[in-house]
């Protein structure tokens, strides 16, 4: 199932991954090949089969909401690429 150039660009935009022109060509070819391979699953009749999202029979693991120690903010901010005071600094989300 070949995917076209526009689909590659659409997926890249959804994933927020910038691509070079070379990447676009390469991914178009490689993703088409891999997606084609995935078609093998259509051979299986799964109409009566429930999906597995998780292998353990765990559901809604609950605990009491007890306050505990948190990481100190200075340690958390230590890896920030850009910070201002005790905040992560980010470019404006909404353009003027």
């Amino acid at each position: 199932m070949p995917i076209d150039r526009d689909e590659v660009l659409h997926i890249a935009r959804l994933a927020r991954v910038g691509l070079s022109e070379e990447d676009v060509h390469r991914f178009q070819e490689q993703l088409s090949q891999i997606l084609d391979y995935f078609q093998v699953l259509q051979e299986l009749d799964t109409s009566e089969v429930p999906p597995t999202s998780h292998v353990l029979p765990l559901q809604n693991v609950m605990r009491d909401d007890e306050p505990g120690a948190s990481l100190p903010s200075q340690e958390v901010l230590a890896n920030a690429p850009q910070r201002e005071g005790d905040f992560f600094k980010v470019r404006a989300v909404f353009e003027e």
């Binding site: 699953l41 259509q42 299986l44 799964t46 089969v49 429930p50 999906p51 597995t52 999202s53 292998v55």
Partner: peptide, 11 residues
């Protein structure tokens, strides 16, 4: 969704 169903078969 198909893959998750196949996951059930394999399990």
């Amino acid at each position: 969704l198909k893959a998750q169903k196949v996951r059930t078969l394999i399990r």
